[in-house]
């Protein structure tokens, strides 16, 4: 093993340790304090054609905290996530019922512009999906279409600060003009997070953001999520219960299109009320 590889391993090891520290911080009971509510969903249903995918979901999502949705495949957690920024609108034959309010405003109200909504609610997808453009253009994409930058220098500042917030700037600062698709999987996912941050959202939705990444890249992203929650409301869908326990303060358990139980992450994992939740967490179902 060469020296540089050794150094790299050391760096990764220290990152994992800090992640573990922040995980214990996340589990700290101070986070169960009541927070201001950001999103409130009432009786949300989703049909894909004749098939009902969600049966009346009601949940409150607090500000500046990480809320995780867990549950077995096909339980509706991603479907519900995609209701929050109305991404289900792009799927032919999808119908959404019930109400979802962002800061008291119904996001399915006809007077609300879906484009503005999506600028306020950013999204990070399961598979890193940078555009086949340069790293700079990837991050500048959102600010450009929304006209957020008044000048070229302004745009550069937005791009740099977004890359910094996503913890990617130091790694890519010398090659901003190279294609984003040339980065490693973990870097691509952080690029996608930077891209979402650049629009200046209030809420960030993450749909299994680490499922395509290796454990080291996952640890880095989890650390990043923990930093981001100071400024953003984060909702994360995950298959990994350990990840939910590590990064989130609130957890909701979905099963077969129903919201079975939700509450403080610590309560859900140490003292679940519902038998199904208990079985899932113990690894008996799913």
């Amino acid at each position: 093993m060469t020296n540089t590889e050794n150094a790299k391993m050391d760096m990764v090891a220290s990152k994992i340790m800090t992640t573990q520290q922040s995980v214990s911080a996340a589990m700290n009971p101070i986070d169960s304090l009541e927070r201001q509510l950001r999103l409130t969903a009432r009786d949300v249903t989703v049909h894909y054609g004749a098939k009902q995918a969600l049966h009346g979901i009601s949940i409150d999502i607090p500000d500046r905290a990480v809320t995780s949705f867990i549950g077995p495949s096909g339980c509706g957690k991603s479907t519900f996530l995609r209701c929050i920024n109305r991404m289900n609108d792009t799927i032919e034959g999808a119908r959404v019922g019930g109400t979802i309010k962002l800061d008291g405003e119904d996001i399915y109200d006809p007077s609300l512009d879906v484009v503005e909504l999506r600028a306020r609610i950013g999204m990070v997808f399961q598979k890193p999906n940078p555009f086949p453009k340069s790293i700079f253009d990837n991050v500048a994409y959102g600010p450009r279409i929304h006209g957020l930058a008044k000048s070229k220098a302004d745009l550069e500042e937005i791009v740099v600060s977004s890359l910094r917030k996503a913890g990617l700037f130091e790694e890519v600062k010398d090659r901003l003009s190279e294609p984003g698709t040339g980065l490693s999987g973990g870097q691509q996912q952080r690029l996608c997070i930077a891209r979402a941050i650049a629009v200046g959202p209030e809420v960030i939705l993450m749909d299994e953001p680490c499922s395509a990444l290796d454990p080291i890249a996952t640890a880095i992203i989890e650390e990043l999520i923990d930093e981001l929650r100071e400024n953003y409301t984060i909702v994360i869908v995950t298959h990994s219960m350990q990840q939910a326990a590590r990064v989130s303060q609130k957890t909701a358990f979905f099963h077969l299109g129903n919201l079975i139980e939700h509450g403080d992450t610590e309560d859900i994992f140490t003292n679940p009320v519902n038998k199904q939740t208990q079985d899932y967490i113990m690894g008996r179902i799913g």
Partner: peptide, 15 residues
């Protein structure tokens, strides 16, 4: 063109 590209753009509020 992968659906993920399209979703990524819509997710950023593009029309």
């Amino acid at each position: 063109v992968p659906l993920a590209m399209r979703d990524g753009s819509y997710g950023l509020g593009a029309t």
